[in-house]
Amino acid sequence: MKIIRQLLLLLPALLLSLLTLAQSKPVEMADTMRSNGRIYVVVAVALTIMAGLILYVFRLDRKISRLEKESN
């Protein structure tokens, strides 16, 4: 029983050591946003601005359409 508990305590320690091992070398992750000098971040920003402006124009269009319907 005591041995099992000791082994269970050992398990997180082992996992921890694994983690530090992983940190020592570069981790390959889904890092699209950080590749190519992070140009994708610029694309995301520009797209957000574009989406915001277009949404604004779209809402104006809707409002004017409603006004036109009311006045007819």
Partner: peptide, 8 residues
């Protein structure tokens, strides 16, 4: 398309 292809 302009924004995406324009930057990339």
């Amino acid at each position: 398309y302009t924004v995406i292809a324009g930057f990339l």
